[in-house]
């Protein structure tokens, strides 16, 4: 702790959570090492690819959730929002027969709009974020079913759509590393979000909102407007997740989505972002998403029943947050 605090660097906002990130990272390494020893199948390239692929959708959703949580809020609508965006893409591409870029843009726009709406409920109508996004979660779930007529929409008429997530541009260039595009998209989204948080006005105000909203307001900043902007940004990232899931399944499954928000929040928490707001990192969140994917994959390889995987994941969440509490207490005691 003192080593970190004694030399605050320019990336201080990224570093305040250094210890927890380190902890999460160490946990990830330990898991990978443990599973490698336990099973020779774990460290195979196809399996690693599968883990990364599995982490990509949850990772992107978790990045969106991180943005909101840093402001001191929460977004429960990321799961069904993702489905809603996929359905919108399906409508535009399959029903209306528009070209692929239009479908992608429509999905991201749909996510942005739903984020704008959530943000407005929270900032302007003062509905608590938990309630506002719980409402949005149900609204978006219902709309997905209504729009799709409760049937899956397939992307068979849009050649190349499945390649968005499952193809590998990296593999075409470097055949030895067939990294799926979905993973590249996760890293790109994470990179952009991290940059926005660390370097832009929007990011600065996100931390300020979570740290002390009243102080931000008293500094003469239009706090409501920035809060809405953060929710909208989160929504647009949910739109990206919608494209990813649609591409992986080659379809928009309107019944899907519920429960994804909890996995996303779990990844955020394991990554060391504080639910109280004001603190958090995207890198931590990505590590959190990877931990969850590694865990699910490794336990499956070891033939642990699906039911027990959930129990383990739950325990890991509590352990991660408990470790964070310990660290905080020690930091507080140190001065």
């Amino acid at each position: 702790m003192s080593a970190i605090s004694s030399k605050p660097g320019p990336g201080n906002l990224l570093r305040t959570q250094g210890a927890q990130k380190l902890l999460a990272f160490a946990g990830l390494i330990a898991l990978v090492a443990g599973f490698s020893l336990a099973s020779p199948n774990f460290m195979q390239t196809p399996n690693i690819i599968a883990i990364l692929q599995a982490a990509s959708v949850n990772g992107v959703l978790a990045v969106a959730a991180t943005l909101i949580i840093i402001t001191g809020g929460i977004d429960l609508s990321v799961g069904t929002g993702m489905t809603f965006c996929a359905v919108i893409a399906g409508v535009v591409l399959t029903y209306l027969g528009m070209p692929m870029p239009v479908g992608i843009a429509a999905a991201i726009l749909a996510g942005t709009c739903s984020g704008l709406l959530s943000g407005t409920f929270v900032a302007k109508l003062k509905v608590p974020p938990f309630i506002a996004t719980l409402g949005m979660m149900l609204i978006l779930k219902g709309l997905s079913l209504v729009i799709s007529g409760t049937r899956p929409i397939y992307f068979n008429d849009t050649p190349g759509f499945t390649d968005i997530a499952t193809g590998s541009i990296v593999g075409m260039i470097v055949p030895a590393v067939p990294l799926p595009n979905g993973v590249v998209i996760l890293f790109a989204v994470a990179g952009i979000a991290s940059y926005i948080l660390g370097r832009t006005i929007l990011g600065r105000y996100a931390f300020a909102l979570g740290s002390n909203e009243e102080a931000l307001r008293l500094s003469g900043v239009n706090a409501d407007r920035w809060k809405i902007a953060i929710y909208a940004l989160g929504g647009s990232i949910v739109g990206v997740a919608g494209i990813l899931i649609g591409s992986r399944l080659n379809s928009a499954q309107p019944a899907l989505g519920l429960g994804y928000e909890l996995d996303a929040i779990a990844a955020v928490v394991i990554g060391g972002t504080s639910l109280r707001g004001g603190q958090g990192t995207i890198l931590g969140t990505v590590i959190g998403a990877l931990i969850m994917a590694v865990l699910a994959n490794g336990l499956r390889i070891l033939s642990v029943a699906q039911e027990w995987q959930t129990v383990v994941t739950g325990s890991i969440i509590i352990l991660a947050v408990y470790a964070d509490m310990l660290r905080r207490q020690r930091a507080a005691a140190a001065g």
Binding site: G210, N212, A215, S219, Q279
Partner: peptide, 20 residues
């Protein structure tokens, strides 16, 4: 005091008026 604890000193001083 109405400072934002998670931000650093300089960020607090220029909140809302950051040089861009």
């Amino acid at each position: 005091l109405s400072l934002m604890r998670d931000l650093n000193a300089a960020q607090n001083i220029f909140i809302g008026r950051e040089p861009r």
